[in-house]
């Protein structure tokens, strides 16, 4: 009905003009945040790696450990095989083309993990199948924001916040993580759901040099929200970075090969 009064329009214009430098001023922060995230991402992975690790699942009623050999190339391809305990010996997982298959030796069948089971526990741990399949999307699906400098357990740290992009198919509302200042060593991740509740915490411990890299070798995942007393510990026993892995490792034939 009425046109916008001139003073209001001018104020708006002014606000826009002022905000532009602010956005630019924030740029370096988010670039730093992204660099931290990228560093964290490549540090643990390399362009490819082969590793042996032990996963210990702690429950109020029981504790059990599974040892696995793993081969990983880039973010999209990985192959894992259980070597211990004997009951699960030969159980294998293949991640490829954004899908996951598992080979169950006792029935000699390959099963594709259906979308309905993505949020189910992976091998009984506090990790979900989705965690395994979509770990790589931390860089692509989230915007990175530097919250600021912080101190964690007496160590100077950068506090970075990951907020998912509007249409990203992710399960978290946000992820907060801390890295050591200076070398960007991973210290802790905290995962929050859409209600703003902290769902789980991952702590990175026991930094050691493995294959020439300083990396945390003990990762402790603790779920919250009525799951106190549950814990999953991943220990890297051995890792080789930037190794050549034959293409055939990442095929279903390899998954199903006779053992």
């Amino acid at each position: 009905m009425k046109s916008i009064p001139a003073p209001v329009f001018l104020l708006c214009l002014l606000a826009v003009l002022i905000s532009v430098p602010v956005v630019e001023a924030r740029e370096p922060d988010s670039t730093l945040a992204r660099r931290i995230a990228e560093h964290a991402d490549t540090l643990m992975r390399g362009s490819s790696n082969s590793s042996t690790y032990r996963m210990t699942i702690v429950r109020p009623e029981w504790t059990r450990s599974i040892t696995m050999d793993s081969w990983e190339r880039g973010k999209k391809l990985s192959y894992m095989e259980v070597t211990d305990p004997p009951r699960d010996l030969g159980t294998a997982y293949l991640k490829r083309d954004g899908q996951m298959w598992t080979f169950l030796p006792n029935i000699e069948r390959t099963v594709k993990i259906p979308p309905s089971m993505m949020m189910d526990s992976w091998m009984g741990s506090d990790l979900t199948n989705d965690d395994l399949l979509n770990e790589s999307s931390l860089l692509d699906d989230y915007g990175h924001e530097l919250v600021g400098a912080d101190t964690l357990d007496g160590v100077a740290a950068w506090h970075v916040r990951l907020i998912p992009h509007e249409d990203a198919p992710v399960v978290w509302d946000r992820i907060e993580f801390w890295v050591r200042q200076g070398d960007f060593m991973l210290m802790r991740d905290e995962y929050f759901d859409e209600k703003g509740r902290k769902v789980r915490t991952m702590s990175y411990e026991e930094i050691k040099t493995m294959d020439g890299r300083r990396i945390p070798t003990r990762w402790v995942l603790e779920p919250h929200l009525k799951k106190e007393g549950n814990r999953t510990v991943l220990e890297i026993l051995d890792v080789d970075f930037d190794v050549t892995i034959p293409d055939r490792y990442f095929t279903r034939q390899h998954l199903e090969r006779s053992r």
Partner: peptide, 16 residues
């Protein structure tokens, strides 16, 4: 028929 489910420990398991 192939049955696939999670066992007591949460691992995927199968049976024919």
């Amino acid at each position: 028929v192939i049955i696939v489910t999670q066992d007591y420990y949460g691992s995927l398991c199968g049976a024919l």
